[in-house]
């Protein structure tokens, strides 16, 4: 089995696992709905600036709770079994792709919920979708790798937050800026530059993660 097929197979396995233990996914969806409703009932009148901030903050915390279990949910023995069957990089790639898609779906859900309750303030839909996709990818790459690190320690949930939050700040700062453009309350000419920087950050984090993962999984 080559690496590509392995990745696809693992991706499928992740999806099946998620579906079987659907409490995790439904927990995150419940979290998203509860937060959006709470924010809406507390603020009632949400301007575009606030909308932008709330959207990314909800997505950030949804990402943490969705990704924290990536490497923790399976026991050390089962992971060893996987590593003896497949290329470790295929495992990492499958988790990253899975988390990217999961986060993208979640962010569309958050967007839909917020739009339903407060109206849709997004003016440039294409740009916003692109930002959401690149953002989901960046958050997925960074958090997946950090969760691989923190899974080795005992209190991995706390460690994930401590290690992960500072690292994703550059991604979030760029996302907030692009989001502000897409919502139309900031006019900026250098928006392609921002998108390129976001892509560059994603690619650097991805390549470093791929380079370093071989040192990480062995135990």
């Amino acid at each position: 089995m080559n690496m590509f097929r392995q990745t696809l197979r693992l991706l499928w396995r992740d999806w099946v696992l998620e579906w079987r233990s659907s409490y995790a996914l439904s927990g995150i969806i419940l979290y998203v709905i509860a937060t959006v409703v709470l924010v809406y009932s507390a603020l009632l009148n949400i301007g575009p600036q606030l909308w932008n901030a709330i959207f990314w903050v909800i997505l950030l915390f949804a990402a943490v709770s969705a990704i924290v279990k990536s490497f923790v949910q399976e026991s050390q023995h089962r992971q060893l079994y996987y590593y003896s069957l497949v290329d470790p990089l295929a495992l990492l790639a499958a988790k990253m792709i899975y988390n990217t898609l999961l986060l993208f779906g979640l962010s569309l859900l958050i967007w839909g919920m917020l739009a339903l309750l407060t109206g849709n303030p997004v003016k440039e839909t294409g740009l916003f979708v692109l930002a959401v996709f690149l953002g989901s990818m960046g958050l997925a790459i960074a958090f997946t790798f950090v969760s691989a690190i923190s899974a080795k320690a005992q209190n991995s949930a706390t460690l994930l937050a401590v290690l992960g939050f500072p690292i994703i700040v550059p991604i979030l700062l760029t996302l907030v800026k692009i989001g502000a453009n897409a919502l139309g309350f900031i006019q900026d000419t250098s928006i392609t530059g921002d998108l390129l920087i976001l892509m560059a950050i994603n690619l650097t984090l991805l390549s470093v993660a791929i380079l370093l993962y071989p040192f990480l999984w062995r135990d």
């Binding site: 960074a142 790798f145 690190i149 320690a153 550059p170 700062l173 650097t204 370093l212 040192f215 990480l216």
Partner: peptide, 21 residues
């Protein structure tokens, strides 16, 4: 081993933070 991995990862994450943003 793991802190070495994190140190390299952190340094790479530092570059956009300090020079690009």
């Amino acid at each position: 081993r793991i802190s070495a991995v994190y140190n390299i990862f952190a340094f790479v994450a530092l570059i956009p933070l300090i020079y690009v943003l």
